[in-house]
Amino acid sequence: MKPSQRINLALSRVPAWPLYIVGGLVPFWYLYLGLTGGLGVEPIEALEHRLGELALQGLIAGLAVTPLRNMTGVNLVKFRRAIGLVTFYFVTCHLLVWLVLDVQILSQIWADILKRPYITIGMIGFVLLIPLAVTSNNWSIRKLGPLKWRRLHQLGYAAAILGAVHWVMLAKGFQIEPLVYLGIVVLLLAMRVPKAVKRAVA
């Protein structure tokens, strides 16, 4: 048996549901840290940034499933729905911290969304993820049919790009970390191009 097959066999015994529990608790863990001094003297910004980073990591994890299978044979598809939904939850928490704890002022929130390009871009990314979260269930796949469903879920590509660009635009000076994240997203999307081209030609 190939190593990838052995891994897949082992994974077949691992359920996906613990991801929801762990993912669901993570923001509360950070909230607890923020309340008890574990996030430093400016916990609002720290909480906002941690959640944003987690969301971006989740988007990347979701995008990595297919290339990983194509390159190594390791199949994580059964975890992808959980990854996607937990990621959407992180994005929502990130947005809520920004709205409720950070900006606070309702008129300023709207002005920021319209006036500040990095916030506009982040908001568009969030909105694109809503239909994905809503249709992340078996009923929707049946209802839409696999082809339509898959097309719809390609919105995740755009959301990941927008999320990474959102961070790059917000950085001051020349910062490596957000550029690395953007680079990874672009790479994971680029790995899909050859197959898409083949499909278009065929």
């Binding site: 909230l31 309340l35 400016e42 609002i44 704890l101 606070q104 300023q108 002005a111 635009m169």
Partner: peptide, 19 residues
């Protein structure tokens, strides 16, 4: 250009510090 300067957050107010 990227954010408002009308308000500020005083460090030390914790998670629920008002601007």
């Amino acid at each position: 250009p990227r954010w408002s300067q009308a308000t500020e957050r005083r460090i030390g107010g914790g998670l629920f510090a008002a601007r």
